[in-house]
Write a protein that binds this DNA or RNA. Structure first.
Length: 230
DNA sequence: TGCCAGGCCGGGT
DNA sequence: ACCCGGCATGGC
């Protein structure tokens, strides 16, 4: 352990790492990099982020494949495709009528504000872009943050159902905590580094799936069980 | 068979 | 400011 006091002027004080940071290190050592987001392009990340809303990823992949096979998987073509056709193609992803509308809403925003150019959209500041995306019907906080982090490489932490379940199961936040509180828990306790946020969220999904069933109390095999309060 | 999956919206208190 | 029903397919 490091002694504090005498050499304050020489080296900065060493504080204990926040527990949130410890948990990341634990997960990374246990599972290694997760290689997220599974997509071939930033635009594909955006479409996937909308399609995966409350939906298993395997079903999203089917929808993405359909769009690619129809040779319309680019912003212009998708924007020109009528909702009926679009909903048919994304059917495997579920909620297909809503999601067709959501994709169209996003593309309308994308073309009217940024000429359909991602490079143009990324020039916007993080906070402004986030607020603007949240005004699009069908883009909520998680979807917006997923787009910002995994498509745009912006340093914003994504909170999803697994994240929520893991931090609540381990009593790192109160049971009623909402999205912004959990997001702040992570962002206040971690350096603002895109790669870190990227990997951390992916790791949380990994252990969420593996050890944190929806109705289970707390899996004894979870590598985080030692961090439980109380 | 029923439950779950990388949410979000709109209407009702 | 919460709370809840609706949206829908596919896998286990």
């Amino acid at each position: 352990m490091v002694e504090h006091g005498a050499d304050d002027k020489i080296s900065p004080k060493i504080y204990p790492l926040p527990i949130i940071y410890h948990i990341y290190l634990t997960l990374y050592k246990a599972f290694g990099p997760q290689h997220w987001w599974p997509a071939e392009s930033p635009f594909e990340v955006i479409m996937g982020a909308i399609l995966t809303q409350n939906t298993a990823w395997v079903n999203v992949e089917k929808a993405l494949t359909n769009l690619k096979e129809a040779k319309i998987f680019n912003p212009q073509s998708l924007y020109q495709t009528d909702l009926e056709t679009l909903s048919l193609l994304i059917r495997p992803a579920g909620y297909y009528n809503q999601k067709a509308r959501k994709i169209n809403n996003f593309l309308h925003f994308f073309f009217s504000s940024y000429r359909g150019e991602l490079s143009c959209m990324w020039q916007e500041s993080l906070k402004i872009l986030r607020d603007k995306m949240l005004k699009v019907r069908g883009i909520g906080e998680e979807t917006a943050d997923s787009i910002l982090l995994y498509a745009g490489g912006k340093p914003i932490f994504v909170v999803d159902a697994y994240t929520m379940r893991v931090v609540k199961r381990h009593q790192l936040v109160e049971e009623k905590a909402y999205y912004g509180e959990v997001q702040q828990l992570f962002m206040r306790n971690l350096p603002r580094i895109t790669e870190l946020y990227n990997e951390y969220h992916a790791l949380l999904v990994r252990i969420g799936k593996e050890f944190c069933g929806k109705r289970e109390p707390l899996c004894q095999l979870c590598p985080l069980r030692g961090y439980l309060k109380g």
